[in-house]
Structure formats: structure tokens, C-alpha cells
Design a binder for these strands. Structure first.
Length: 149
DNA sequence: GCCAACGTTGGC
DNA sequence: GCCAACGTTGGC
């Protein structure tokens, strides 16, 4: 089983929204590196849900991958913000997985706290200029973050 | 709202 | 294939 971190803007879709929805197709990822990570996912993989672009950026909850990778239907929908006119149905450019709620954390583990952790090795979340919305998390990183809860 | 970082686009 | 312009992300 692999572990991942997936960002969401809580003003648009928060951990509480995921809790209410139970399972959500994680559509709209339009970055090739993030897409490639999605394509490497398997059902049952563990996910940290991270709140970005908000007052308190940090890890807010846990989820799991609930489907195999599959084409993101919004790429074919001209009314969608995520429409991609260049993507062909025979060879879809963008991929999603379904994400299932597991639990909220008792509190948000903030980015500042995560940055203060040492010995975690390379971590895309805390790299300078970090903009990846889907990224891998090592077991050590996962354990160290959740130990802060 | 600002702005640094960085990915993408498109002219050449 | 270079690189300037532009758009987006996301912390602050």
C-alpha cells in the first residue's frame, strides 16, 4: 500500500465536505506530475487530506483511494472549469481516482508544524515553491505527521 | 490582496 | 529548442 497527500481548498471542498459526501471523484487535477502520481495509485492506498489556500494550511483528515485510476470526465465537459478541448476520448489526458473519507484529525496539523519536523527526507510538501496538489508520502513522513495529532 | 515560484504557451 | 509572457498556486 502506498501513501499520498492530496490538497484541497477548504473554501471549495473541505474535509467536512468529504465527510458528508463519503466518496468523491477527485476531479480537476491538471498538472502532469500530479496526474502521474494519480495514475500510480491503487484502491486502498492511504491519503492525507491537506487544506491549502486558507487561514490554517495543514493536514485535516485521512482518506483512502476508493477506485482505480480512470479518466476524469470533466475534461470532456465544455461547461466545466476543467474542460480540456485538446484531450481525446480515445486517449484521455487527465485521470482521477475516487477518494473515500476515513476520519477527521482531532485538530489540523499545520504546515508550520510539519516544516519543523526533521529527518523526513525529501518531501514535496515542504520543498521550496511547492505547488504539487498530489504527492507521495513515505511511511516515516506519515507516522511523524500523525504523531503530532 | 500581494507576490514568489514555477508550469505552460507560443512566437521565432 | 529557446525564452519571454502569461497564468496559476498557495503562503503570508
Amino acid at each position: 500500500m502506498q501513501r499520498w497527500l492530496m490538497k484541497t481548498e477548504p473554501g471549495t471542498f473541505s474535509i467536512d465536505d468529504l465527510a458528508a459526501r463519503r466518496t468523491e471523484p477527485w476531479d480537476g487535477v491538471r498538472n502532469y506530475q500530479a496526474r502521474n502520481f494519480i495514475r500510480a495509485m491503487h484502491r486502498g492506498d492511504a491519503v492525507l487530506i491537506y487544506h491549502s489556500a486558507c487561514a490554517q494550511p495543514g493536514v485535516a483528515g485521512l482518506a483512502k483511494v476508493a477506485s482505480p485510476p480512470k479518466p476524469d470526465p470533466t475534461q470532456f465537459d465544455p461547461r466545466s472549469d476543467h474542460y480540456d478541448a485538446a484531450s481525446k476520448r480515445a486517449d484521455p489526458r487527465w485521470t482521477l481516482v475516487d477518494v473515500r473519507f476515513v476520519r477527521r484529525l482531532r485538530r489540523v496539523i499545520t504546515l508550520d508544524e510539519i516544516k519543523s519536523l526533521r529527518g523526513l527526507g525529501d518531501f514535496a510538501l515542504t520543498r521550496r515553491g511547492n505547488r504539487l496538489s498530489v504527492l507521495p508520502v513515505t511511511d516515516k513522513q506519515w507516522d511523524a505527521i500523525l504523531a503530532l495529532e
